[in-house]
């Protein structure tokens, strides 16, 4: 049995470093999800507007997010905008900007979908009771859409965590990058470490994402 390099992980602080890398990834996703949910709610309400110009703008926005790979957006924000505007943007901020840009579009579209699925009579009967527009959203419409939105938002978290693997390409030291460093540092003593270490990274992602996506699926089934 060749040495597959699991032992490398138990040398020094290697495993803790790997977890640290994972946390860097999860932190970026959580911040981005929080921003996405907050702005996405507003976005979704705006998207139900009948204003033609607003509608066209949203369409383009959604389409950009739909078809541009996140990695391309990361490159544009990290390499492109720093070049054009000459500002200094850390890779982590660039990642949060891109992930939020993506998340707000997705959340917005989900919220819009949930809002227009509420029958018109709900709005009308709230109006008939004398509620204002904001009151109607706050007390009547949003509570009805929450159950649909929660599982979808949880799903967005797992997708973001998975996508954070890309940020190593703009130089953030996340779990894959740490893995590479560990493999590199132990090249001589443990030449096969790539197998063990990447296998562990594979599992780490699974261990983080799987329970979250199960939870989303469970809630979706329960509340539908």
């Amino acid at each position: 049995m060749p040495n597959l390099g699991i032992d490398v992980l138990f040398k020094g602080k290697n495993f803790l470093r790997l977890l640290g890398g994972l946390w860097a990834a999860v932190r970026i996703s959580l911040i981005s999800v929080a921003i996405s949910i907050a702005l996405g709610l507003v976005m979704g309400m705006l998207m139900t507007s009948q204003n033609k110009i607003l509608k066209a703008v949203f369409r383009v926005y959604l389409e950009v997010v739909r078809i541009m790979p996140q990695l391309v957006l990361l490159f544009i924000v990290y390499f492109g905008t720093t070049r054009v505007f000459g500002w200094d943007l850390s890779a982590e901020y660039a990642a949060i900007i891109v992930f939020s840009f993506w998340g707000v579009a997705e959340m917005g579209d989900l919220v819009r979908g949930a809002l227009i699925s509420i029958p018109k009579i709900q709005y009308e009967s709230a109006q008939a009771l004398g509620m204002t527009g904001l009151q109607i959203y706050l007390y009547v419409i949003l509570p009805q859409t929450i159950r649909r939105l929660i599982p979808l938002s949880i799903n967005l978290i797992t997708r973001m965590i998975k996508t954070t693997s890309l940020v190593m390409m703009i130089g953030i030291v996340e779990v894959l990058k740490v893995a590479q460093q560990i493999i590199e540092a132990n090249r001589r003593t443990s030449p096969n470490a790539a197998f063990g270490v990447f296998a562990v990274v594979f599992l780490l992602y699974f261990i983080v994402c799987w329970p979250i996506s199960r939870l989303a699926a469970y809630l979706e089934r329960r509340w539908s």
């Binding site: 998975k162 890309l166 894959l176 990447f198 594979f202 992602y205 699974f206 799987w210």
Partner: peptide, 11 residues
Amino acid sequence: RNTPLLVQLFF
């Protein structure tokens, strides 16, 4: 479904 393509490819 619960792991990134990048990690799958590295593996």
